[in-house]
Amino acid sequence: MLKQVISRTVLQEKVAQAVFIVAACCCILSVALICFFLLMGGIPGLAEIGVGEFLFGTAWQPSRGEYGIAYMVLGSLYVTAGALIIGVPLGLFCALYLSRFATARLGRFLQRGVELLAGIPSVVFGFFGLVVIVPFIRSSLGGTGFSVLAASLILGIMILPTIITVSRTALDSVPQQYYEGALALGARHERCVFRVLLPAAASGITAAVILGFGRAIGETMAVVMIVGNQVHLPASLVDGVRTLTGNIVLEMGYATDLHREALIATALVLFVFILLVNLLFNLMKRRAGI
């Protein structure tokens, strides 16, 4: 009798374990498959075009067999840099406020707002940019309005939840003794926060910035709708560019053969970017201990 019970629990454990392993494997497998697909799909194209020509070539004219993504790499970096310039200070101050200045009730309320912001689909952000930001830039700064600036603004807002949440976690996990130690020396609250807590959370905040970078460079829908998508070097902030993500989504529908392979290779480049970002993030996270 007892033996039966034991063997039944052992069996249950084994089944449960198997289920978990299958679930875990599915996650890993999907990453591995994406990786495999990108490499298999992208490498032949890359080989045919030439890695140097592909990465550093400035002309993207598939009809003439010219596949250079340099301007799009730059476009992605410009837009992402713009997003960080706008999003990082805003998000960091917001995190500081939530972590160390807001009353508990107001903090909870604002936190809900941040969570809501994180839940808004990117197409909605794009649409907002299209009907509000783009016309505003067109009328106030000139040009078509479809611009690096518009995309930076929207992306800056889109990365806020990431920046706020991660840096707030970093700030919250700074030991209270640091704060008390500074306070006991006669420092004002602001000084304790900015001169002791903020430096103590530095690596966590760097992790937030890195994660924000990854989010911004990978964003597609909202950017395509407002960034203009011209393959060229932008003359100013109100000029348009094309990003790596935009390039893929704009042309995938009709691309064939080498053109298609070049687009997959574009995705591969993006994937490498994200991989590097993740690597950096994990490094910073380990240093921050969060």
Binding site: G181, L183, A184, G186
Partner: peptide
């Protein structure tokens, strides 16, 4: 209060040097 805490220093139970 800040001036008071300058005049009355404190050492805590657990050493709490700042991470600098």
């Amino acid at each position: 209060v800040n001036l008071l805490r300058k005049r009355v220093g404190m050492v805590f139970q657990k050493p709490n040097p700042f991470p600098m």
